[in-house]
Design a binder for these strands. Sequence first.
DNA 1: GACCAGGCACATC
DNA 2: GATGTGCATGGT
Length: 222
Amino acid sequence: MLSTTTSRLLVAMFDAMLARLGPSGWWPAQGPFEVAVGAILTQNTNWSNVEKAIANLRRAGLLTAESLRRARPEEVEKNIQPSGFFRQKTKKIFHFLEFLEREGARDVTDLINNDTSQLRKQLLNVNGIGPETADSILLYALNRPVFVVDAYTARIAHRHGLVPEDVSYPELQEVFMSHLAPQVDFFNEYHALLVRVGKKWCRKRLPLCNECPLRPFLREAI
DNA sequence: GACCAGGCACATC
DNA sequence: GATGTGCATGGT
């Protein structure tokens, strides 16, 4: 499983994406709590819609755990409406706040001393937080070396012969985590680049492989 | 006017 | 355990 060939390939793919696109600057947020809220809001939603919701929350003074706890659900719903699924996502945000409270944490930063794998299990226990959201919070809010994978990662990895089309989340994550050095900045940039490349060149219907920075690796992977 | 987006939970078989 | 469906908005 742990082959140096795959490790080299993955690193070379990273280099190629970074050389073409430059650094991504993820996660665009003003602090760990905002990252966590953004991670919930971006579920199955375009980031531009999330930006509108975040801007609304900021304007309403609702971007801290403390203020959100005191807010009425309808008020949160109204503000995050542009991000879609606003009733569900409001409940998810409150579930997350309840989790913080149970942990005796006033904010996300108070989880700093929790063990990573333990914290991951706890996050997955929160209704509304699945693997991708949990890992995004761990990596982008809490700076833990956890590789975030998603639909783009699966599509790209599949097209390069690294995984079957119907690969599960844990299997896909394991491919990256078992072949790459667990460094926060590296994992951060890698996931961001995969999403950016996926959006631009690896769409479901129109894969524009000719212009994709990963094009040179298509043969090598098989 | 479909199709898609930085998913997840729940029902049903 | 695998497959299907609801959730909802805005861009392409």
